Structure formats: structure tokens, C-alpha cells
Computed example of a mutant assay.
Amino acid sequence: MAALVVRWRGWSAVRRKVALFLAQSSGGIRCKSSIQYVSRPDLPKLAYQKVKGKSPGVVFLPGFASTMAGQKAEALQEFCRSLGHSYLRFDYTGCGTSESQWTECTLGTWKKDVLFVLDELVEGPQILVGSSLGGWLMLLAAIARPEKVAALVGIGTAVDHFVTAFKALPLEVKKEAEEKGEWTLATKYNEEGVYRISMDFIREAENHCILQGPIPVTCPVRLLHGLKDQDVPWHVSMQVAERVLSTDVDVILRKEGQHRLSEKEDIKLIVYTIDDLIDKLTTLV
């Protein structure tokens, strides 16, 4: 079983370079990279932004129905730029400025997006930073491309989430969703106030569930989760930590943290975590 360290709010030390970056960016994040598009045979174009730099690089994986334009994604881009390390953020198929409609996509669709990015758009080992559903996808990518993934950082990691949440519903609610062909899930993250998730999405996602047994991931893993997360329970990160085969695993719990962990102090902790991993991986080399 993986070694597990639980850390409460705070960090043991603030590196000088991190403090300098935070001071310089206090007036707001300024990202100058332009959006690029990559064509794929028989697949929709993907939109991405890339900063060239040293290895290990960092790749950001957004959450469900989210995009690369969020605060965390932008802050990490500026941090990696300040360190001289490569960084890539992108929109999944059907999300943001990438082609297609997200309602036509599956978890498998987005897994293919992540693998394409690792195979074609970046070079050398990468630290994958997955937010919410992106945390599920980062683990799937690490299983499929272990040689490409140097470390993982999960933020409110939503492994197996939609499948688990649907199975926990009352029988009558599940039956109604099956009859309609979609599950209406309340959310505060869009104007409509609901996600309309097709039953095809749920059924396809079952093929990618990984919490039933050992997770064959051996690289360093850091899992950040808010204790006040009302979308994905923090104990999901504990389950992931217990099941990954890696012996280098930390679970970092934020006492006041919400699901997205996008407040200034949350982003500061994410930056510290990535900086620590870069130092660790560079030292190992």
C-alpha cells in the first residue's frame, strides 16, 4: 500500500523563487501566449497554449466542462514561465475553443485528447496537474503513458466520480434518468444551474473506473483537496492515495478549501507543490 502523508493547511517552507513570483504577479496574471490549434486525422482540432522551456514540463488538465482559461491554469503558466520550465494547457474536445460539442463527448474522448497531447505536443517527462475530472484523466494517462509522466498533482480529484455519484442515487431517480436517457445534475458552475449528462456518458465512463483495485501508477503523487468540497468528497483523494502503487504520495487537505481550490491561498499551495516536485525531479536527474 502507498505511503500516505496527510498535511493540513500550510506549507513547511516558502522558497525564495516562489515568493518572488507571487510578489511579481500580485497585480494580476498576465499571459501572453497565443492560442494555437492542432489538427488530428479524423478527430476535431484541439486548442492549446504552450510555453517552451526546460524539463520536467507541466501540463494542466481542466475539470468537467471547464477550459484552459481558468485562474489556476493561467497562474501555473506564469509560474512555469518564471522558472523557465515548459508548460502546456489545452481545451478538451468540445470545450472552450476546441472543435466539436462537449455533449457529444465521453471520458474516453478526453482521455484520447490527453494522450495526444503527451505524444505529440510536449517533449520529455511531464508533471500532470489535473483539476477535478482532470485528476481522473491524469491517472488514466499515467497508466497508459508511464514513460511520459514524471509526477501527478490532483486538485479535488474526481476519480470515478460521475459513475459513483449516479450509482448512489435513489432507485427511482436512476430509473427516471434511464428512461429519459440523461441525468440532470444540479451545479453552481453554469448559468442553467444543471449539467445534463447523457446515460451514454455514464455507461462509457464505467469502462475507465479505477478505484476498484490497485492503481498501477508509480510516480510521485500529490493530492490537494478541500475539506469543504461539496462536489467531490475529500475521502476520494484518500482512496486514490491508498490504491496507487507509488510509495511517494502526499494528501494535502485544505480546512477551508472548496472544490475548485481557486482562491489566492489555494493557488499559492498548488504552486508550492509543483515547485517542490520540480526540485525533487531535477535532483533525481
Results as ranks from 00 to 15, higher is better:
P216M: 08
A168Q: 15
A186Q: 14
L227Q: 03
M199S: 04
R243K: 15
E178I: 08
A241K: 06
A168C: 04
D250K: 02
E256H: 06
P216D: 09
E172Y: 01
W234E: 04
L253H: 10
E172T: 07
L245P: 12
E242H: 13
P216G: 10
I197T: 07
R254Y: 10
E192D: 13
T247S: 08
P233M: 11
E172C: 01
E179I: 12
L169W: 05
V251P: 05
A241C: 09
H225L: 00
P216K: 05
L171A: 15
R222H: 01
Q239K: 14
V244H: 05
L227N: 02
K255G: 08
P220I: 03
T247A: 03
R243G: 07
Q258Y: 15
G193W: 03
E179H: 14
V244N: 00
L169V: 05
K188M: 06
K175H: 15
V221P: 00
A205Y: 00
P220H: 00
V217I: 01
V251E: 01
T187E: 05
E178W: 06
L224I: 08
P214Y: 13
K174N: 10
E256D: 12
K188I: 07
Q239S: 14
S246I: 11
E242Y: 11
K188W: 08
E172N: 06
V244I: 08
T247W: 01
L253Y: 04
I215L: 00
E178N: 09
E191F: 05
S198H: 08
K255Q: 14
L224H: 14
E192Q: 14
V240T: 10
Q212V: 09
P216H: 06
L169K: 07
D250I: 03
T184D: 12
T184A: 09
K188P: 03
D250S: 04
V244C: 10
E179S: 14
E176T: 10
V194T: 11
E256F: 11
A186V: 13
G213P: 01
V194A: 02
D229C: 06
H225D: 01
H235W: 15
H225V: 03
S237C: 06
D248T: 03
A205E: 00
R196V: 13
H208D: 05
H225I: 04
D250E: 14
